[in-house]
Write a protein that binds this DNA or RNA. Structure first.
Lengths: 208, 208
DNA sequence: TGCAAAGTTGCAGTCACTGCAAAACCATCC
DNA sequence: GGATGGTTTTGCAGTGACTGCAACTTTGCA
């Protein structure tokens, strides 16, 4: 988990960031998102309030704790995909890779977040708003890959579909987590891939 | 514009609401969203700050000014569509109907909003977060229409696609408003309908 | 005209978030 | 080991969004 060329300083930063994220999620799950103040979160993470805001631009952001590198990383993956792969496939793969990583590193946090998001589904949407610039970045990568101008609808739409897929998958998963979150996201992206024009078959006990 | 059975009270309410919305958009477009305080908006609309918050739950909400009836209205339209129509078609039609109405009533406001949203694209996302419960309502309607259980992914995904389509269409339209916003939303929904798996043809000067 | 319901307002308070400047801290080089 | 310089942490003071409450005003209706 600790990188090779990482200085003490870097390690400390990573640890406080993680502590703040963890404190936010834990407290919010425990007593409800808006019955927790930033002051309490900071205290729990043993750090000043001002420091909290050095790490996260808002309380919302700390709850989701999205890795700031995730956007660029996905964009890079989209561009690095082998030549024969369609833009859709490349994007789909990079989303799923990111999510699998995330769940492997912090499955326990997501289980807590689930409780919070069930009470306040709007928080997930708002958290995504924060990363509006990252959407732009990703859309550019898709556009480049697809050979379309930046102004074209398709890249933006594909990226937005990714967000939507994730969002819907989480709420679906929150209702019944007998399926892996990653699989639900995959299903959702597939639906977007093949089109929503007709209603998918519904098997008892199945997901799509 | 004024309803038949509308009392003086109701008319006044509609007028203050409209005034607040208008003031918010006008001032935000003029000098930037976060250089405008709620106090100034209230003053512009000739009303107290407290009253502002009786009408809108947040400054964000006032900027978009989504009609609180819109969600229920669309849900009703989805359920009322003729029997032969697919859920997708029914939903698509109800979204487009709503948007056409909105643009007919307040095209000028949308032109101003465009300027604000170009500076701060996150605001549109956040505004949609407010209407998370309405999404739920719409999703139920779609589920019912499609004969799927509430827990199924499809209805949620279709509704989320609607939001995404609108969001992307606005940003696309903000770049170049030589096409009607309604048409762009239509194009976006069609892309979702037929599927994103393959890249659409790109005609010079065309949209999709 | 008078009463009840609905809408408006001011006020006091909480809390998220920001800029700034001092203090504590870590890395580096002598 | 100690001086030096860049980074991070912190306190503090301030702004502004938002809420609950208790008067007060306006509208609907008998």
């Amino acid at each position: 988990m600790s990188q090779p060329g990482e200085s003490l300083r870097d390690r400390k930063k990573r640890r406080t960031r993680a502590a703040l994220e963890r404190a936010t999620v834990r407290l919010a799950a425990e007593r409800g998102y808006d019955h927790v103040t930033v002051e309490e979160i900071a205290a729990e993470a043993d750090v000043s309030v001002r420091t909290f805001f050095n790490y996260f631009a808002s309380k919302d952001e700390a709850l989701i704790g999205a890795d700031p590198e995730a956007g660029p990383r996905m964009a890079a993956r989209v561009l690095a995909a082998p030549a024969g792969v369609t833009p859709f496939q490349a994007y789909r793969d990079s989303v799923l890779a990111e999510i699998t990583d995330e769940l492997n590193n912090a499955r326990d946090l997501w289980l807590l977040r689930k409780d919070v998001l069930m009470q306040r589904p709007d928080l997930l949407v708002r958290a995504f708003a924060t990363s509006a610039e990252h959407e732009q970045l990703l859309a550019s990568a898709v556009a480049q890959r697809a050979g379309l101008p930046e102004s074209h609808l398709y890249p933006r739409l594909l990226v937005a579909a990714g967000s939507a897929a994730f969002r819907c998958a989480v709420t679906r998963w929150a209702l019944d987590d007998s399926v892996a979150l990653g699989d639900v996201v995959g299903d959702a992206l597939d639906l977007f891939g093949t089109g929503l024009a007709h209603v998918p078959q519904h098997h008892e006990g199945g997901t799509s």
